[in-house]
């Protein structure tokens, strides 16, 4: 019994050293050499070289001249220290009330548009989804063009050029990165502020 306990302690010590400390340290060192940009959060800079976000982490956008992200249940919205979904179920009254309010608000700002793409009124699982669907981007482009006083066709061309296809042509779903799209808008048509 005592012998087994002693062995347990020694096995614990050795495996903590090798798998708990050496392994993550070695992977960190290799990652920093091989893929430094990705390993450190795929940070995105604007034209002036200022870090404005991560290509992988969504942000809230409220200005009419920017494409909007999905609703977020992470903290007060896109709080990257509080990732998570709404966890509201299919028969939740609170979910129904939230979607009803969001749908009314969004419809009001997209006069003449058809039904809202579902992702634009659904909170993501992480609360940090950096993407919207291609349909959700197209849905917003007339509003964005109007707010920036540019031809919708030019915004449409930009959206098309920003569509990311399925990975390896097969995996995942086509999508548009909202931060990258809005940065491209600023670059092409000038900042909104």
């Amino acid at each position: 019994m005592l012998r087994t306990l002693l062995t347990s302690l020694r096995v614990t010590g050795l495996t903590v050293l090798l798998t708990g400390l050496l392994y993550p340290s070695a992977v960190t060192a290799l990652a920093q050499v091989l893929f430094a940009d990705k390993a450190n959060g795929s940070l995105v800079k604007d034209d002036r070289g200022r870090v404005v976000g991560s290509a992988l982490i969504g942000q809230a956008f409220t200005h009419a001249g920017y494409f909007w992200s999905r609703p977020s249940a992470a903290g007060a919205g896109y709080d990257a220290l509080a990732s998570g979904g709404s966890n509201l179920g299919p028969t939740s009254k609170r979910l129904r009330e939230r979607v009803t309010a969001d749908a009314a608000r969004i419809s009001a700002q997209h006069a003449g548009a058809t039904h809202i793409p579902v992702d634009l009124v659904s909170a993501s699982g992480s609360g940090l989804d950096p993407h919207i669907s291609v349909a959700a981007a197209r849905y917003q482009l007339v509003r964005v063009a109007a707010a920036r006083s540019v031809e919708p066709a030019r915004v449409s061309t930009l959206v098309d050029s920003m569509v990311e296809g399925r990975d390896l042509g097969l995996l995942g779903e086509p999508r548009v990165n909202v931060l990258r799209l809005n940065l491209a808008l600023d670059t092409q048509f000038g900042a909104v502020h």
């Binding site: 979904g85 709404s86 939740s92 129904r96 979607v99 419809s107 579902v118 993501s124 992480s126």
Partner: peptide, 28 residues
Amino acid sequence: ASPAFAGLAVAEDGGNMEGKEVRFGIAN
């Protein structure tokens, strides 16, 4: 489409996206 969304001006062809990520979609 989720029953919580029924009757609203939301497209029904996208499935239930509450709690899901766009890059993964419904199938994944």
